[in-house]
Amino acid sequence: MHQLRGRDRRPARRAAPASASAGRAASPVELAGARVVLVGYFSAKEKRFGALMDAAAAALTARGARVEGRIVQRRGVSHGGVAKMTWPFSSRTLLGSGKVREVAAACEAADADAAVFVASLTEHQQCVLTELLGCRAVSLSEALAAG
């Protein structure tokens, strides 16, 4: 029987055997001709988030990608969010659940090949987001390094 996780009461996933995950290497990100949705996650203290998104879009376009959409989540903008600015990011998805649904809808509408996150993503976040979004989730630094 599965053990229930503390907060959400969903059954925990069983870990894949070490040999299964060790043999899997992530394929490089191919940007030439790819349709991407650009996703930014910024603190409210970051006032230049628009310029950062523009620079990221320009870098992706220079490598042959077509930026089909942009989505930004800012942390600490609302009254209650200011108190949460020092909390760590979501270890599972980086974004809130509503924003993940918004990104998934944008990826589906654009028939995106990838969702490129301006922030760095862990391997776990990449796997979870890839599953939730229906397209590959990668960080901008990884996408630019591969292109």
Rank of each mutant, 00 (worst) to 15 (best):
L31K: 07
E131Y: 05
V128T: 13
T93W: 03
G76Q: 04
K99P: 00
A18L: 00
L94H: 15
R63W: 05
A115P: 07
L60A: 13
M85N: 04
P88G: 10
A104V: 08
T130I: 11
G81E: 08
G33T: 08
W87E: 12
T122W: 00
V82L: 11
A119N: 15
F42R: 06
A32I: 01
D113S: 11
A32N: 12
H79C: 00
G80E: 09
S78C: 11
A119C: 12
E30P: 01
V72C: 04
W87I: 03
A56H: 01
C107G: 06
S90W: 07
A20T: 13
V116H: 04
A55K: 10
D54L: 07
S43N: 13
A44F: 01
D111V: 12
L52H: 12
G33R: 06
V100I: 06
E123I: 00
C127G: 06
R35P: 01
L129Y: 08
V37D: 09
L95F: 15
H79F: 14
G98M: 04
V128C: 08
G81V: 06
V39P: 00
C127H: 08
V82W: 07
V72Y: 02
R75D: 05
S91E: 15
A57E: 14
G81H: 01
L95Q: 00
S120G: 14
G40K: 00
V39T: 11
M53S: 03
F42G: 05
V37K: 05
V116W: 09
V72S: 08
M53V: 09
T61V: 06
V37R: 10
I71T: 05
V116G: 02
S21N: 02
E68C: 14
T86Q: 04
A26S: 13
R75I: 10
L121Y: 06
E46C: 11
G33F: 09
Y41H: 15
S43L: 15
A55R: 12
Q126Y: 01
G134I: 10
R48G: 02
E123M: 09
M53Y: 01
A26W: 05
V67S: 07
G96T: 11
D111W: 08
M85D: 07
Q125A: 10
A119M: 10
G64T: 08
S19E: 12
G50P: 00
Q73V: 07
F49V: 06
G40N: 11
H124W: 05
H124V: 08
A59H: 06
G69I: 01
V116R: 10
V29G: 00
K47H: 12
R35W: 01
S27K: 14
V29C: 08
V37W: 01
L95P: 00
F117P: 03
L38G: 00
R63S: 13
V118D: 02
A22I: 04
R63E: 13
